[in-house]
Each structure stands twice: as C-alpha cells, then as structure tokens.
Design a protein around this nucleic acid. Structure first.
Lengths: 362, 362
DNA sequence: CTGTTAGCGCGTTCAA
DNA sequence: TTGAACGCGCTAACAG
C-alpha cells in the first residue's frame, strides 16, 4: 500500500482542524500550537538555539516527537539559499567504472550531510542539457560530472555555472574547469617497475582498443619506466586491439610466437589479463614461474577468480569519487580550488600471478 | 574555479540593486521588473497560461532568456506540495545487481520528470534510518528500496510512511508492503526446459552459496520443470557451496566424476558456469556437443567473453527497476497498488554454449 | 526568554 | 488582459 493515515496526536486546541485532514504533513505551526508557544520559539527549541528555556525546549520536543514532526527541508532551503544537494551527472550509469566513483562520492557527500541527485544522460547531449537544467532549477549546491567508459576529455558544461563543478574520471576539455582522474600513465609505470623488481626483463604489453587514451597512456608509462631502467617494452601492433578476451587471447598468442623469451605480460585490463592466463595455461606455461601476468582495474570479481589470482593496478576509483566530493566541499567552504586536471595516484595490488604468496590451490 | 560571475543583464530600472550582488539567482521578480510587468503576469507568460497577451508573453520570455532566469524548483515545491523527487535507498551500491535496477529506475523516473535522490546505507541499519529521515524531510514523493546482494526478504521500513514505497529485488518482509523481484524459480524452470528441449536428459545443477534463497529457488524451479517432463535434476551436496569460480570448478569436477553421462549443466551464476566451462575444456569435453552449459544473470562481460559464449538466464533487472518506478507512478496518480510480492518474468538468452549458432571461432 | 513580523520565490486566487 | 495580495513552512530580525 502507499500513503498512510493520520498520526496519533489529538489533545490540545486544534483537534477539530487537524483531526482527519486528507494527508497533511505536521508543520511547525502545529507543533507550536500544540505546545502553546510561537513558531519561532518552537523552531529555536528544536534546534538548540540560545534563547529558550530548558523546560520549554523539552516540552516542545516532546510534542514534536508525539506529533511525528518532520521539519520540511524544502521550506528551510528556501530561506537558507542552500539545498544541501549535489548533482551527479553521468553518461554511463551501467558501466562498471562509474559505479565505484559514484559510491565513493555518495559516501563522502552523505557523511557531509549532502544528498545526491543522480542523473544519467546515457551519452545523449540533449538529455544532458535537460538534466543540467533540472539540476540548476533544483538549486543543487555542487555538481560532479562522472565520465563514462572513456577517459578522453569531454566537452565542458560551460564556465558560467553558478556553482562548483568537478569533472571526474573523464576530465573537461576546458582547462579552466576542475577535473580529477586516475593516473593511467603512473599505472603503467608502476606495473613495469613491479615486474622489473621481481626480475622480469622481457616484458610485453597487451593493449586494449588503441583508440582509448587509457590503453595508450598505460603503455607509455610502462615504456618510460623500462627505458629508465635500461629495458624495453615489447608490444604488438595494436591496430586491431579491443577490450575483448578474444583479442586478449589473440594478442597473447601472437606475442608468444613472435617474441620468444617473454617472461611477463602487462595487460591493459583484467579481462585481457585473464585471456592471457588462459592462453598460457593452454600452452602449459606456468604462472608466475615462467611468465608473470598483471592486469588493470583490480576488478574484484575477476582478479580473485582467476588461477592464479591476478596482480592488478587499482585505479582507486572509489577514492577518486571521494576526492571529487572533497573538491566540492572545499569550493563550498570558500576555498579556491585550482582549475585543471588533477591526476590521482593508483597502486599495484600484488597477487599470485606475479609473486606467489601461498600454496597454489586447485 | 567555481561560482561564476554576473550575467549580461543591465538596462532597465534596478541597475544599482542588482549590478554586483554577491551571487544571487535571477528571480521571477527580476524578470517581471525588467519586462515591466507584474510577477504574476510574468509567471503566466512563462508557462503558457491563458490570460496573457501574445506580445507580453514574448517580451517576458525574451527578458527571462536574456537574464538567464531559472525558476526555482525549491520555491515551486513549497506551494505545490510535491517535490518531483523519488528516493532510492540501497544497501549495496557497489554490488552489480543494484546497478541495472538503479539505471532502469532512474531512466523511467527521469522520463516522468522525477529526479532521483540516491542513498546508500551500506548495510548499516543506523545509516538506513538516517537516510530515510533525510529523505522524508526532503519530502520525496516516493521511495524505492533496492535490495543488495541477497534476495531474502528484508525488514520493512514500516507501514506508516506518508508516501508510496516499493521494495525491489529483495522484497519487504511485510506482506502489506509493495515488493517487486525477479522470479528465480521461473528462471530455473525455463533453464531446465530449454535444455530438455535441445535433447538433454541428464541435467546437473551447480549451486552457489546454499544459504542464498536465489540459489535454492533456481534449483527448485529446475527440479519442478524436470519432474513435470519426466526427468530428474542431478545435484551435488551443496553444503560447501559458494559463488566463487573455485567452487564452480570443484562442483563441476565432482559431478562429472560421480555422475557419468551428464550432458548439461545449469549453474546458479555466470561465474559458476564459466568455471564449469574451464573444467570441461580441461577435460577435453566439447561444449555444447558433449555437454551444454548455461548460467544465470546474463552478465554481459562474462557471457560474451567465454568460449563458447554462454547461454544464460537474464533476470531483467533493468526492467525490474523500470517496473518499480512504474509502481511509484501508479501510486502517485492515485491508483491502488496491490501489496505483496510481484514476481517479474525472466528469460533465457540462448548462445553457443547450449545451441551452436555459428562457426566456433578462436 | 519569548512572541511578532517579515521575508525566501513562486503560483494562484480574486479584483480591477 | 493585468496586478495586488496571500500562502506554502521555516528562519532570522526585531520587539516586548
């Protein structure tokens, strides 16, 4: 069922008036009347303001409690000028990258008493404008724009928005906007360093769709790290690359055939790494003994289900969401938030596919 | 960067007053003044109401446009009594089952001009109460409670909430509440019928964590279907079951060893099905020729990446979210929504792991 | 310490 | 066709 019925008030003055009204919320005036004080006194009493007698306060509170009074945030917002809401605008709600960011942001915002209004434009610019309009009319205090599948810069929503805006994951194309994103290049760099540190010297990269910046950045990072260490990154022509396991298997096989002696793979995603594991298994190559493998994303459901479990670069997306929220808070409290792209650190999570920790089961 | 600066208005009367105020939104009064009409006229003009001259209307609109007027939803809500918002309360935002439901609901609600306020209680009852309080104070028009990982009934939020509430995925324990969920039993039933229809007569079930209703319901459905067809479902003792691939491999191996002649597996999840595929592959059993395999969830990233691609039961979660939203709309428009659990249909998505469609690649 | 008054920004009577 | 006045629920400024 839906709407409930009246509450258990009664007693006191306005019995007749309230009794059986077709569903009205209990208002401050009701409380004040029932407590025999004025609205402003009731208001103060309920909010620990100075200037209210202790006895009055408790009486008002009891009455409010009994009546089931819920102060209307709407009314409060009208005078306060702030709504205590932050919009989160995304284009790919179903994508798995958006979720952790969203979760992190919601968590941080909620802890700061801000509610999240969620909008999914599903990649449609028209819908995006519509949602933006709605959000502005709702007088949100801040806005987080969460990029979808790709990390490429996205069009700015404009500089003249009357509120703090933070772009997360996919930065804004306008350098004057505030953007936060995961540092893919650093990820590649750390991955290569990790493999180097465990003695691998013949490290190959399995890229994803080469039109993705993320795939290229990760390769760049690895390449740079190895160059600094005196090594070199082995790559395959990636013109046909994609994010499918099918491609992962193909690329792995090709690399193994053409470049004998490979002792480690960096895959641009966990799915690709998993594909690599499958191929290595088929070829009776031991992981990590013969070949170490690591992926990107640290996607729990994948990395803990492969055999052996998969070392992976964690992009810290939840933390990214939290960080985006913190930028909003900063702006809201008057701080000057520096414009531009703020690249956030990532980290390598080591598992059995590069360093054996315990008995390999199965 | 954050708050922008003034807009390009100027001209007309109140130049001094507005000029450089510390960031005030353009209000209806501003528009009215600038257009030389009264507030009420401006209001009507902007909303196609009768009783406004055509020329007046266009003039007001031009002015509003130029001033960048955005009617405050907050103010409107105060008198309207409705806020045009729906709360979505979940306990497992990061879980992959919540997302499609959330996406479906957001889509349907957004199309109906309702905004979504998202709250994640992360399984904490205290936090849930707090969020609920906030939502009620924000005067949401409706509430959707989206269950997390498990499908078991959850505690009701109470019968006396002054708004329509719909529980999705995990129903409310109170039969007086409105609940919608995927029909797991039907899923098991359809799965078994599908396999039977392609000639399989020795069908085994790989369950997940046996403490999950979902795992048991699916088995029940399959068992019932086979019983009706004159068959019997082969199961393994599931006391040790879980949702990991590790368990999936174990269970598959055990079933194959103990029950020779199995020609089909129904796994309680796609991950488990994937594990089964791995074992079958290791044993050089052909899929689907020797053994057909199907999973549950129809999780895109998994089912399209296995070899062969995986037949799976789609729980229609996005549609479930949409349906939950529709229940809210119904209640909001005064319809009587029947209380109780409303089980929604699921469907089998056939792929190569049960019926070969095209050349097996790789 | 308490009560009265005046908005917040909009929509909606009801007169003019 | 237009405008003045009121109210939505609450808070903040002032009086008492």
């Amino acid at each position: 069922m839906l709407s409930s019925d009246a509450d258990g008030l009664s007693s006191r003055g306005a019995a007749v008036e309230i009794a059986d009204r077709p569903r009205r919320e209990v208002t401050l005036a009701d409380v004040a009347r029932a407590a025999g004080v004025s609205k402003s006194t009731a208001s103060k009493a309920l909010r620990d303001k100075y200037g209210v007698g202790a006895d009055t306060r408790t009486r008002v509170r009891e009455v409010a409690e009994k009546l089931g009074f819920r102060p209307s945030a709407v009314a409060r917002q009208l005078t306060a000028g702030r709504t205590g809401t932050v919009g989160i605008l995304t284009n790919d709600l179903e994508g798995r990258f958006v979720i952790p960011i969203l979760a992190g942001a919601e968590d941080a915002l909620g802890a700061g008493e801000l509610s999240v209004i969620l909008c999914d434009a599903r990649g449609d610019a028209i819908r995006e404008r519509r949602h933006l309009r709605t959000l502005l009319e709702r007088r949100i205090d801040g806005l987080i724009v969460v990029g979808g599948a790709r990390t490429e810069p996205r069009p700015s929503l404009g500089r003249d928005l009357p509120l703090p805006v933070v772009y997360a994951y996919a930065p804004s194309a306008d350098p004057e906007d505030v953007s936060v994103a995961a540092d893919d290049r650093l990820g590649g760099l750390l991955a290569a360093e990790h493999l180097w540190s465990i003695g691998r010297r013949s490290i190959a990269y399995i890229g994803g769709d080469p039109t993705y910046d993320a795939s290229r950045e990760r390769a760049e990072g690895a390449r740079a790290a190895l160059a600094a260490l005196g090594g070199e990154l082995i790559t395959a022509p990636m013109s046909a690359g994609s994010w499918t396991e099918r491609w992962g298997r193909l690329a792995t096989a090709r690399l193994l055939d053409e470049q004998p002696g490979i002792d480690a793979f960096i895959a641009a995603s966990d799915m690709l790494a998993r594909a690599a594991l499958d191929v290595l298994r088929d070829r009776r190559l031991r992981v990590p003994d013969d070949v170490a493998v690591m992926g990107f994303d640290n996607w729990p459901i994948i990395v803990t289900n492969t055999r052996p479990e998969l070392t992976s670069v964690d992009l810290g997306l939840q933390e990214l969401g939290r960080y985006a929220a913190s930028r909003i808070f900063a702006a809201l409290s008057g701080e000057e938030v520096a414009p531009g792209l703020d690249l956030r650190p990532v980290r390598v999570v080591v598992r059995d596919s590069t360093v054996r920790n315990d008995v390999a089961a199965d």
